[in-house]
Simulated scan of single mutants.
Amino acid sequence: MANNPRRAILLMNLGSPKSTAVKDVRAYLNEFLMDKRVIDMPLISRALLVRGIIVPFRAPKSAEAYKTIWTKDGSPLIVLTRQLRAALQQEIEEPVAIAMRYGGPSPKQAYDRLLAEYPSLEEVLLLPLYPHYAMSSYETAVEYAKKQHRPYADRFRLTVIKPFYNEPGYIHSLGETMRPYLDQDYDHILFSYHGIPARHIRKTDITGCHCLRQNNCCDTPSEAHAYCYRHQVFATTKLVTQQLGIPDNKFSISFQSRLGKGWLEPFTDVRLEQLPGEGIKKLLILCPAFVSDCLETLEEIEERGRETFLAAGGQSYHMIPCLNTHPLWVKTIAGWIGAYRSGDREMVSAER
């Protein structure tokens, strides 16, 4: 690591409850679901829905779900993000810190720690650990980090890495995490992406007339695609399956973790019930919207998804882990930082 660094790297992930206690899960869910970019309703309506209906019923159930995946070191997502930080630090000279969108450490806490240790800091390069743009993931993380940076604007600048859904290093890393599983006998690969409401797709359409408003909108070139989650998950899937030579009839896409009506379809839980009846008995499944395994992968997909598929008549079910700390993924991030250090700004996000 450089003795007197002018730049630091900040890895930003989703976050997690402090523990599996209901009170901690309730606090986490309140912060998460009260985010106006997650549930985009007027404040009073959002508060009534979240605090009056969703959280009181969901917190105890979520606490039980977290207990099934919790490790001796805590939340898998937090543990894996720390491990990614440590692995990346071995590859680059700039100091690396982590922050979470919900829970801790917050971006402010990360900024304070970096400044205390490196008072000569001039820039923080923020990498939101979300491959695809969505207002409820990448956008809210970036805006939160920017908001907490404002009091420090005269101390250091904040530079943001853009979504990397089609970046060659990311696609190669994702493909290589999949490759060992392709040697086994399987009927189908299901790419399960986190679901979002269709209205979010329309809201982030900077043209106001393309996304979900035109036939084949995701395949028709448009500047809207820079902010379109649906287009980007299709692009990721296409690129990685082409890289691995997987035929079109051997994979499909679905969306998980829906909260209500009007979300992107098809739904993962529904497809897991249907696939055995369509002759697909041996399934591989992965969740490329996440780079770190978490509740949505380990409990929703690995545990409940397996139960659903096997109960419907499936014979074998294998979840391919997220990138986590895969050596190629670590080297990919290090490569982006090295390129930026050398003056390449291709991976830097432009202001909307």
Rank of each mutant, 00 (worst) to 15 (best):
N4T: 12
P5A: 00
R6P: 05
A8K: 03
T20Y: 11
K23E: 14
V25A: 02
R26A: 13
A27S: 15
L33D: 00
M34D: 08
I39A: 07
L43C: 08
S45M: 13
G52R: 07
P56E: 06
P56S: 12
F57Y: 09
R58L: 00
R58C: 08
R58W: 07
P60T: 06
S62E: 07
T68R: 13
S75E: 02
L84R: 06
A86M: 12
L88Q: 11
Q90F: 04
E91L: 09
E93H: 03
E93M: 03
V96E: 09
I98W: 04
R101K: 03
R101F: 06
G104E: 14
K108C: 08
K108Y: 07
K108V: 12
A110Q: 01
D112C: 08
L114P: 01
L114I: 12
P119S: 10
L121A: 11
E122L: 00
E123A: 05
L126K: 03
L127P: 00
L129K: 01
Y130L: 08
Y130W: 13
P131A: 07
A134S: 03
A134Q: 12
T140S: 14
E143N: 15
E143D: 14
E143R: 15
Y144L: 14
A145R: 01
K147L: 09
H149V: 05
H149W: 13
R150K: 13
R155F: 02
L158M: 06
V160Q: 08
V160G: 10
I161G: 05
P163E: 05
Y165F: 10
E167S: 06
G169R: 08
P180D: 07
D183G: 15
D183T: 15
Q184S: 15
D185G: 01
H188V: 05
I189T: 05
F191Y: 01
G195F: 10
A198Q: 13
R199E: 06
R199N: 11
H200P: 07
H200S: 05
T204G: 12
T204P: 10
I206R: 12
C209T: 15
C211T: 02
L212W: 02
R213I: 07
C217A: 06
A226E: 09
Y227F: 14
R230N: 11
A235I: 02
A235V: 08
T237K: 09
L244D: 08
P247I: 00
P247H: 01
P247K: 08
D248W: 07
N249T: 07
S252M: 06
I253E: 03
S254F: 05
S254I: 03
F255A: 01
Q256H: 00
Q256V: 05
S257T: 11
R258W: 13
R258H: 15
G260I: 09
E265R: 12
P266F: 04
T268F: 00
T268S: 01
R271G: 00
L272C: 00
P288I: 01
C294L: 00
L295P: 11
T297M: 06
E299G: 06
R304D: 05
R304S: 09
T308H: 05
T308F: 06
A312Q: 00
Y317L: 03
T325F: 04
V330R: 04
I333R: 10
G335P: 03
I337L: 11
M347Y: 04
A350M: 06
